[in-house]
Computed example of a mutant assay.
Amino acid sequence: MNYKKEKFQVAGVSHYSDSIMKDIAYENDDYLLSVKELSETYDVGDRVFEYSFDDCNASLVPEPTNEHDPNAVRVEVKGILIGYVKRGSCSHVKNLLKSPDFDHVKVEIGGGKYKRLYEDDDKLKVEKDSCELFADLYIYTRQAEQEPEVAPVPPSATSSPAIGSAYSGSAPSPAAAPEKKKGGAASIALIVIGVLFLIGGVGNFPTDIFTGFVGLLIGGVCLYFGIRKRRNLKQ
């Protein structure tokens, strides 16, 4: 199944930091690593937070009775309120939830105390700092799988146009094949007639020189044109 993922910001996360840290966060063992150990896993500039948060399934609950924004949508993880869909995205989020293609919702949470690797005089050092908790909301909708595109079949060799001519896409003329067959039969007939006249002419020479000469002449002409026509058909 293919999914479309849309990202939205969760507002007001810092207001619920106590419950988030208590019930959702867990200690990150990497935060206790030495500078050397951190450099083997992380790059310069990476932040290593003291606490980690799994990507959680979330529940989105519209709040039409919210006195500040009747269009508000609350975001809950494990039944704990962590914030609200950012104002301006609520209508779109509600439409996604009503869509027959809606599948599921996930939340990524981050923030708090962290360590960051940096370089000073070609030496790796660690600075400690912190940032407010934040959360990103992802809504997944199902997408129909697209049929694979079928490549067009190229024209076959038998229907290819002659070199130098433009291909119009139309089939070759029906008369073309029979014409070639007639030409082939005619060339064979000329060759056979020529051979027969040559044989007759040679046979008549002892008794009738004139008839024998005419037979050789006619046989030679027929044989010449028959062979020539045959060669032209093969080209």
Score class of each variant (00 low, 15 high):
94 K>G: 14
124 L>A: 05
141 T>C: 09
126 V>D: 02
189 A>L: 14
126 V>W: 08
190 L>T: 00
142 R>H: 12
134 F>R: 00
180 K>A: 12
119 E>N: 05
100 P>A: 12
103 D>C: 12
168 S>M: 08
92 H>S: 05
182 K>D: 00
169 G>I: 02
184 G>F: 12
179 E>V: 00
182 K>Q: 01
137 L>R: 02
119 E>S: 07
171 A>H: 02
92 H>V: 08
173 S>T: 14
184 G>T: 11
127 E>N: 10
107 V>Y: 00
145 E>H: 13
116 R>A: 11
127 E>A: 08
190 L>F: 13
107 V>K: 00
178 P>I: 15
122 D>K: 06
190 L>Y: 12
100 P>R: 07
113 K>Q: 09
176 A>G: 09
99 S>K: 03
104 H>K: 07
97 L>N: 04
135 A>Y: 01
150 V>K: 15
189 A>M: 11
106 K>M: 09
154 P>L: 12
147 E>Y: 14
116 R>T: 09
178 P>F: 13
107 V>P: 01
155 P>E: 10
125 K>G: 02
153 V>S: 09
109 I>K: 03
183 G>A: 08
177 A>Y: 06
143 Q>N: 03
144 A>W: 08
158 T>R: 11
115 K>D: 02
156 S>D: 10
138 Y>R: 01
120 D>G: 00
172 P>H: 05
181 K>T: 09
98 K>V: 02
97 L>V: 06
94 K>S: 11
131 C>H: 03
90 C>L: 06
120 D>E: 13
116 R>K: 14
91 S>I: 13
126 V>E: 04
153 V>D: 10
112 G>T: 04
181 K>Q: 08
179 E>Q: 00
120 D>S: 09
183 G>D: 04
167 Y>F: 12
99 S>E: 13
136 D>Y: 01
134 F>L: 01
94 K>I: 15
104 H>L: 03
158 T>E: 11
128 K>H: 11
188 I>S: 10
158 T>C: 09
93 V>S: 03
157 A>Y: 10
103 D>K: 12
166 A>Y: 12
105 V>F: 06
159 S>G: 00
166 A>D: 11
93 V>G: 05
161 P>V: 08
129 D>F: 03
101 D>A: 11
153 V>G: 01
100 P>S: 12
177 A>T: 05
111 G>H: 05
150 V>W: 13
92 H>Q: 12
151 A>V: 14
177 A>F: 07
129 D>Y: 04
164 G>V: 02
146 Q>E: 15
125 K>A: 11
171 A>C: 00
108 E>R: 10
148 P>K: 14
107 V>A: 03
132 E>H: 07
111 G>Y: 10
102 F>E: 04
183 G>R: 11
98 K>H: 08
88 G>P: 06
178 P>W: 11
146 Q>R: 15
173 S>N: 15
108 E>C: 05
146 Q>K: 15
164 G>N: 05
108 E>H: 09
184 G>C: 05
102 F>T: 03
132 E>P: 01
187 S>N: 04
103 D>H: 12
96 L>R: 08
155 P>L: 13
186 A>C: 09
171 A>Y: 09
161 P>S: 03
146 Q>I: 12
125 K>C: 05
112 G>A: 02
